[in-house]
């Protein structure tokens, strides 16, 4: 019962964060600020949604015993989460670096040290 409530809270916040990421891609003016929305919100939303899956599977797993298919589901969901956590910031870094080296200036910037030192 309590586990169900925690699951619904995780699902609600996770869905809201994914929607915020999608809207942020349209609200922000340039590549770098869009990367902020697209990276942070989807990463934390993935953590919460996969946590919801893991909570439900573990409760079934404990009820059914060690060799149920839910144990495999739990482990693989956790591995998928670790893969997302490792790869998402790295690809954001690659996109930002590629964007700056191909000559895109940050919009409405008050300071740009990278432009001054390595034009």
């Amino acid at each position: 019962m309590i586990l169900d409530i925690i699951t619904y809270i995780c699902i609600g916040i996770g869905c809201l964060l994914n929607l915020l990421a999608a809207i942020g891609l349209h609200r922000f003016p340039d590549v770098y600020t869009r990367l902020h929305a697209g990276t942070k919100c989807t990463t934390f939303g993935s953590i919460l949604l996969i946590a919801a899956v893991v909570i439900q599977s573990v409760s079934v797993w404990v009820a059914e015993g060690l060799s149920s298919p839910q144990s495999v589901l739990t482990l693989h969901a956790v591995i998928a989460l670790v893969v997302i956590l490792l790869t998402n910031p790295t690809s954001a870094h690659a996109i930002g670096r590629a964007a700056h080296r191909s000559g895109i200036k940050p919009a409405r910037a008050v300071v740009d040290d990278l432009e001054k030192e390595k034009p």
Partner: peptide, 16 residues
């Protein structure tokens, strides 16, 4: 980020 998506209030820059 949610606050900035909703209000659109940004003041960006690249610092070293």
């Amino acid at each position: 980020v949610a606050y900035r998506v909703i209000t659109g209030r940004i003041n960006p820059g690249i610092v070293k």
